[in-house]
Design a protein around this nucleic acid. Structure first.
Lengths: 243, 243
DNA sequence: CGGCAAATTGACACATCTCAAAGCCTGTGG
DNA sequence: CCACAGGCTTTGAGATGTGTCAATTTGCCG
């Protein structure tokens, strides 16, 4: 199988891909694999030999604390087109695992391919680097949100971000999207108890900002939701630029 | 001026630098600049032409929220040897500013030098990439700490991390270090009010874990402090490895 | 000595957590 | 087709954590 077009779209939105780079990307060979809810896509491993890219569904980076194996913190979510554990290629390994929330399809890419790209395709290398740096910018925004927003606004921020990211790769439109996350998992993301997440969901519903039934979410009032969340998408770095 | 030896030590601790790479690094030309408390080292700028490396002191990445210019959130701290805004080289710009806390000395490096390195020194490029990914790993750990630790433990985690990072580059030892941060700034880091930070400081003091007078901190009981914080330094990726 | 900014303390309000129970949905087996 | 079981969602009530406001103390610098 060849590399996902979602990822190529992700890059092309942000810079111009030279034909040579594009050809190299399309020549990357991948292994397609499916996962079900809760499955471990990438285990914590100090010696991974491949990285994975999202094709379908939603995955999460899950951390456990020393001495408290039952508590879990989710530090990132990944949508189609995201190169989920590209950082595992450069770091000595992951300090977290990657899990599927809902049905997920991914493509695995051997690190040998990435090494070859970094040896011979400097511009493409910078774009891969950029992809990991956008992840880092998202981490920072989550830190900002955690430090400055109360529960409803914090949840609202997450919803704005996910919709924007899904929309950017063409995986959502019309302010509707599917979010295969349990309230328990939302709690692990936002750092609240599941009960409190529930109250935040109800609050957004009561304010008429969203409709939420099962996994299907509709944003009824984007203006209201993004204002409440003080959402400013510039951290997603979606401008085209020479890098 | 030449590039700081701190940074070379940072890299050499994590991988072996080929003589050719080491020579290239030493040939990087820099501009040395000093800053005082509160000074802006790097403004929010969509078109920065250089990045900065810490030589002395402590700097912070500072975010402001849309519509609330007085509220500030700090999402990262940088110690000597850190390549603070290396990510500004690959991203379209910074979504935050970098400020000095206390007296700071930095070296600025032109992006043209970095471009040249990424075109001709693939292994060195991967190491620069790695440096930005370690920053991202620190972001994730801050997210974990924010979601799972209460005030004293959260503060304890920050102290453990700073000491470990200072110690790793030889800028602190014997469990003593200088922290040029106001309680107000600690509050912006941890996401608490200054008053609550004060309570956390007192708590750690009362438990006999630290001594803290002015900017000088002594960790009296490393074991106790790191256990309270559930601190596990593996996210700092300090193992030597071929990358 | 005086003046400021930071650190500290106390009292009270608000946000969030925990525990417990009830309601809802969905898949399964009879 | 129905009854049931189990997991998720929703709700309530009381405990704990954290924020705000106001005042006092401390430490530094002119």
């Amino acid at each position: 199988m060849a590399i996902t077009e979602y990822f190529i779209r992700f890059l092309q939105r942000r810079d111009t891909l030279a034909p040579r780079d594009l050809d190299r990307l399309r020549a990357v060979r991948t292994q397609h694999v499916s996962f079900g809810p809760g499955d471990v896509i990438v285990p914590t491993d100090r010696s991974a030999k491949r990285s994975c890219m999202m094709l379908k569904g939603l995955s999460a980076r899950s951390h456990t604390l020393v001495g408290r194996p039952k508590e879990r913190v989710i530090t990132a979510l990944h949508v189609p087109g995201d190169f989920v554990d590209l950082h595992g290629f450069v770091l000595a390994g992951l300090e977290h695992s990657v899990i599927a929330t809902g049905h997920v399809e991914v493509e695995f890419i051997d690190h040998s391919e990435l090494t070859e790209i970094t040896e011979n395709f400097p511009h493409l290398t910078r774009l891969l680097w950029m992809a990991t740096l956008i992840d880092a910018a998202v981490h920072r925004q989550w830190l900002v949100a955690a430090a400055s927003l109360r529960s409803s606004a914090h949840l609202a921020h997450l919803l704005c971000e996910i919709y924007t990211r899904l929309n950017a790769v063409g995986a959502a439109s019309d302010y509707k999207f599917a979010l295969s996350l349990l309230q328990r998992e939302l709690a692990d993301i936002l750092g609240y108890s599941p009960i409190h997440v529930n109250r935040a969901v109800r609050d957004l519903r009561d304010r008429g900002l969203i409709r939420w039934s099962g996994a299907d979410i509709t944003i009824l009032d984007w203006q209201g939701l993004s204002t409440l969340a003080r959402f400013d998408p510039s951290y997603l770095d979606m401008e085209r630029q020479s890098r």
